[in-house]
Design a protein around this nucleic acid. Sequence first.
DNA 1: AGCGTGATCTTT
DNA 2: AAGATCACGCTG
Length: 196
Amino acid sequence: MKRLEKQFYELPTLELAEKLLGKIFVRMLPGNIRLKARIVETEAYMGEHDEACHAYRGRTARNSSMFRAPGTIYVYFTYGCHYMLNIVSEPENIAGAVLIRSMEPVDGIRVMQELRGTAVVKSLMSGPGKLARALSIDSRCNGKDLYGEEFFLENALPLPEFMIGTSTRVGISKSRELPWRKYIINNPHVSKVRHS
DNA sequence: AGCGTGATCTTT
DNA sequence: AAGATCACGCTG
């Protein structure tokens, strides 16, 4: 496995949303427990020009991680019970991030099942709230980065072949028409699209 | 299809 | 100070 360097994240948001697909997210927990999962669904949130983005009206206490260096982790809490994991894109001081919407469990599945309170592997990480829970990610992770020992990405080897699908983003009320969701076609762990 | 849950942001 | 919203998940 080849670890991705800091430079990997220095990309425009939509491009990073595509490049993250298929990558292995590694999360180290106390006790040398290692969790690994493949990213299979993402969404781009394009900073101050995107009405659906938290940074649309500029920097606030909550969204300040989105203005930090690419490869920073932006975690926020919503709906009273869910944490959302995002990976920051764009140069420092320019807002942008990619929401990780679903993952395929790869390693440490028993620990993930424990954290999620369910044994059903297919639904362990098939949604942004679920995967954060399965990886024990909460607001303490906000502002950390992906080039240390606690969180990092790896290239999956051998490199998997897959086709990338594009659609509108899920669960937002503004700018719903923009095709900024990316996912691996036919991967069973991609979240079900919520319709309203 | 409905609703819990609480932080954050906007409006008064 | 009050009200609205929310990048969701679970039951039914």
